Computed example of a mutant assay.
Amino acid sequence: MPGLCLYAGGALAAKLAGVAAFTLAWTHSIEKIPWEEDWRVTPAGLQLVQARVKGMGAGMEPPPEARLQDGYWRWTPHVPPLPEVVLRRSGFTADWRLCADGRCRTMGELAPGDADPVTLKGCE
Rank of each mutant, 00 (worst) to 15 (best):
W75T: 12
G108P: 02
M107E: 06
R88V: 05
A94R: 15
M107V: 14
T93L: 03
A94Y: 01
L82V: 07
L98C: 03
S90C: 13
P62A: 01
Y72A: 07
L82I: 03
C99F: 04
P77K: 11
L98Q: 03
E61D: 10
L110C: 08
G108I: 06
R67N: 07
P112I: 10
A100I: 04
P64W: 02
M107W: 02
E65S: 12
P112Y: 00
F92Y: 13
H78Y: 00
A94M: 13
V79D: 07
R97L: 14
A111R: 01
G91N: 12
R97C: 08
R88C: 04
R103V: 14
L87D: 09
E61T: 10
P81G: 03
K54Y: 07
W75M: 13
M56I: 15
E109R: 12
G113V: 12
P62S: 03
G102L: 02
P77S: 11
E109W: 12
R103G: 05
Q69D: 08
L68P: 06
P63D: 09
E61G: 08
L98R: 04
A111P: 04
E65R: 13
L87P: 06
D95Y: 07
G57Y: 08
E84I: 08
G57E: 10
G71F: 10
P63W: 09
L98I: 09
P63C: 05
R67Q: 15
T76A: 14
W75P: 08
G108C: 03
P83C: 10
A111H: 02
G71P: 02
A94T: 13
L98G: 01
M56L: 13
A100V: 04
C104L: 10
G91W: 09
P112H: 01
R74V: 14
V85Q: 06
